[in-house]
Computed example of a mutant assay.
Amino acid sequence: MTDGRTILTITAHSAQALLAAAAEAADKAGVPMCIAVSDVGGNLVGFLRMDGAPLLSIDIATNKAYTAVGFGMPTHSWHDFIKDDAPLALGIVHTPRLVTFGGGYPIRSEGAVIGGIGISGGHYHQDMEVATAALTKLGYPVD
């Protein structure tokens, strides 16, 4: 009897490819950004702070990746999830590392969440565009 299970997770090689694809999209948008990729456990696998990206965006990007993998849903989905639920909206925002605005997406492969990507540096709509461009370029589904 085996008491373990096999868990898919993103590789360092794939994380680096996502960083490059996101940086390319951010360059095209003309916005320097911080880009974070986490594994299935929420651990940072890859990170890039583009020249000129805001310092505060370092933590925001890593927390977006963490939030996306931790709940298996994009960070922008949180707003609709909590907006009409006052107790949840007031309480959940005190959860460390939770980000409730756009720019974080789960990374999926073979139907499983294998990691998360978080982008910060522009308006959250720009962050979302860069993240989806990177995921799409590498063939990952976008939620």
Rank of each mutant, 00 (worst) to 15 (best):
D143Q: 11
L90R: 01
V130D: 01
I7K: 09
A133N: 08
G4T: 13
D85V: 03
Y105K: 04
D27K: 14
S109C: 10
D59M: 11
L55V: 15
A21Y: 11
V130R: 00
T95H: 02
I7H: 09
A21H: 08
L98W: 00
G41N: 13
T6E: 14
K28W: 02
A25D: 12
H125R: 06
A22T: 04
A36F: 10
A131H: 06
L48Q: 09
L18E: 09
D3Q: 07
V45A: 08
D80L: 04
G116P: 04
A21S: 14
I82A: 00
I114L: 12
F71K: 03
V99P: 01
T11K: 07
T95K: 01
P87K: 06
V40Q: 13
G104K: 06
T2K: 12
V93N: 02
A131G: 11
T11Q: 10
H125G: 12
Y105G: 12
G91K: 03
I114S: 11
S57Y: 14
F101W: 15
M50Y: 05
G52C: 14
A131P: 06
L19I: 13
T62R: 15
P96G: 05
F71D: 04
K83M: 03
G70F: 12
L138C: 03
A17N: 12
Y66V: 03
N63K: 07
M73L: 08
G111F: 03
P32F: 11
E110L: 14
G41M: 09
T136F: 03
G111V: 02
V40G: 12
F81I: 01
F81K: 01
S57A: 15
M73C: 06
D143T: 05
A15Q: 06
G4K: 11
D27P: 01
V99Q: 03
A53G: 13
A15L: 09
M73V: 09
D84I: 02
A23C: 13
L56Y: 14
M33V: 05
F81Q: 00
T9Y: 06
V31C: 10
T62M: 15
I10G: 06
I60S: 05
E129K: 08
W78D: 00
G52V: 13
I35P: 04
K83G: 00
G72K: 05
E24W: 01
V142R: 01
V99C: 03
A61F: 10
A12R: 06
G118T: 03
T95G: 01
L88S: 12
I35C: 07
E129A: 13
